[in-house]
Design a protein around this nucleic acid. Structure first.
Lengths: 235, 235
DNA sequence: CAAGAATCAGCAACCAGCCAGACAGGAGTT
DNA sequence: AACTCCTGTCTGGCTGGTTGCTGATTCTTG
């Protein structure tokens, strides 16, 4: 299957070099041959495992969930991408065609742009600054992912959950009247799939945290009152 | 502290562009201003948390362990890097000085090359193919790390261990007379620190796997007889 | 807009897997 | 030979997974 694109276009005026002066990767990718703008509704699939990997995506706004689905029906989350994340980079690898092996789903309403891997490669060769920017973006991805590994190696689920909440604060937090709200509608199941636990356990632990006065949950959005205090909760 | 370098040199003849024709990132980085060759003995530190992040490293041969150390003295492994891995990319990020927050230790005898971030940036701007190669290298890193996240979200330790062993086979496996040998001297403690478990549990589980005839351990090197059979062990 | 469907949150009981701590014997090092 | 680091095994205790059920929310659809 191909990726859904509500609005789509390509080939605007202006050269890549012009765009670079503008500064952002967005403007650059917008100018590439075959680029397109994608608007995806919450819950809709962006690509499926087995799809050919031929495009590179840049998430402009919203969140995308990368997950792996097992035969058992179980599903685990490999990454929750935030704004300005580059994904689908698999396609940049050596020429031979490869397939996606993750499932990419819009976790919120998503606005993204994408371009064929070949165009991206050309753009990099044409102007090195493009490569540098992508390199920096990807470095961030690596750091984010490594933070997630730290989270997952905590032995007790309580620490793991707390650590995960702090990661979410960093990536999706918006200031609220009191504390920071994680701007995602998270079900307990979704959290469980991200930190390798079960729905029931998450329910219990979140309940504990709430009765301790660490957070508030309002229509699936979590507000952390004091991230610093929360971070003291794990040794 | 600075990074230890048994042998060191810099500034060879030949331009960067010459090196690119040669093809590998190694040759390219070797030509950069301020580049140096590092030989590090097993167990020696490459950089410490808090060190200024000013160099980019390319692991030529051996394995490097990135870990985070907690005040409690506990230590967890964030990544086990293999040959041709790029690391220390933090330093490529925006101009402002930043510090390492991971501990990088030579897990085996290591041969690596490094160069100042500024030189690398210049090289990329001078020839875009450098950026492209680094981008590909970093893409691999992302994929590797994501595989590790998959491993860590398995709920039971047995699956987690098996999954980890398979990752190691992929990254450090060499064909043996029967099966594949993981070419690393792994203590149970080291495995525990990588998958978020304890030494005792690893001992027990490895014992189980051995008595099931799945693997052999000889002087800390693990040989998996049949990776495919092993992979069937988790649902 | 309201009824129905689907998903989600909360609770309880049960039990296995894993951790903690402790100790003895083995392997490798100097 | 002395030392350090590593492996193997045991006991008790508790966390967290599993299953099953109920009521609440949210989404869909007539």
């Amino acid at each position: 299957m191909s990726f859904p694109q509500t609005a789509s276009s390509s080939q605007t005026s202006g050269s890549v070099t012009d765009a670079i002066t503008g500064g952002t990767l967005t403007t650059i990718i917008r100018c590439l041959a075959g680029s397109s703008l994608g608007l995806v509704e919450r819950g809709k699939t962006i690509f499926l495992p087995g799809d050919p990997a031929e495009r590179v995506y840049l998430l402009r706004c919203g969140a995308v969930r990368l997950s792996r689905v097992y035969e058992s029906g179980e599903e685990i989350t490999v990454a929750l991408l935030r704004e300005n994340s580059l994904f689908g980079v698999l396609s940049l690898l050596t020429g031979h065609r490869s397939d996606r092996f993750y499932h990419a789903v819009a976790f919120t309403r998503v606005e993204m742009i994408s371009a064929p891997a070949a165009s991206v490669r050309q753009a990099i060769e044409a102007d090195a600054r493009v490569g540098l920017m992508m390199l920096q973006s990807l470095s961030c991805r690596v750091l984010q992912t490594e933070t997630m590994i730290e989270t997952l190696t905590h032995r007790d689920m309580s620490s793991r959950l707390v650590s995960f909440l702090l990661v979410l604060c960093r990536d999706f937090g918006v200031p609220a009247d009191q504390g920071i709200t994680i701007d995602l509608r998270l079900s307990h199941q979704a959290i469980a799939e991200a930190i390798g636990s079960t729905r029931v356990t998450i329910t219990r632990l979140l309940g504990d945290l709430r009765s301790e006065g660490m957070l508030r949950i309002d229509r699936k959005k979590i507000t952390i009152f004091d991230p610093v205090a929360l971070s003291r909760r794990f040794s």
